[in-house]
């Protein structure tokens, strides 16, 4: 498959950002819900992301290595594609925020016992803590960023 330098670069960044975010979430979700953001565990997790970020950056650099010299500045098509992808990412972010607000409203706006189904009550309600809010924001960011990258790759491949 013929992949342009720009597509390779976008793909590399997408894999890198997704990888590092999934790594963070994988470990952050294991922490107790009431973990404070100045706790040793959480700060340790964030610090552990630094070397991973550096190594990931080197790997992404290797993926797009040799292409930078040939890379020209973004032209009107690149800018158009990025602009359109930004629009899609924005809509995805708004949808994710709306969903999150809906979950918060569902959890705290409904009187206890209102939800008849215990399963629904168990899975559609959650405890809001600083860590859970932060994790939700990270997930929303990941959704928006990934939407942007996938949209860009789609437009480059299928036409814009």
């Amino acid at each position: 498959m013929n992949v342009s330098n720009r597509e390779r670069s976008i793909f590399g960044h997408m894999v890198f950002e997704t990888g590092i975010t999934v790594y963070y979430l994988w470990h952050a979700m294991k922490l107790p819900a009431d973990t404070l953001l100045n706790s040793k565990e959480w700060v340790g997790l964030v610090i552990s992301l630094i070397p991973i970020g550096i190594i990931g950056g080197i790997i992404v650099g290797a993926i797009v290595m040799g292409t930078r010299a040939k890379n020209t500045n973004a032209d009107e098509r690149d800018r158009g594609i990025e602009s359109k992808a930004d629009g899609i990412a924005y809509r995805m972010m708004i949808a994710a925020i709306a969903l999150y607000l809906g979950l918060i409203s569902f959890t705290y706006g409904i009187q206890p016992g209102f939800v008849p189904n215990a399963f629904v009550e168990q899975w559609l309600t959650f405890t809001i803590t600083p860590l859970s809010v932060l994790n939700a924001l990270v997930i929303i960011m990941l959704i928006a960023e990934t939407s942007k990258y996938i949209s860009q790759l789609w437009f480059y491949r299928r036409g814009y």
Binding site: S4, R6, T72, D75, E76, R77, D78, Y156, G159
Partner: peptide, 10 residues
């Protein structure tokens, strides 16, 4: 014309 080859291809 000041664009990338991919743009000309497209």
């Amino acid at each position: 014309v000041g664009v990338t080859r991919q743009t000309v291809m497209a």
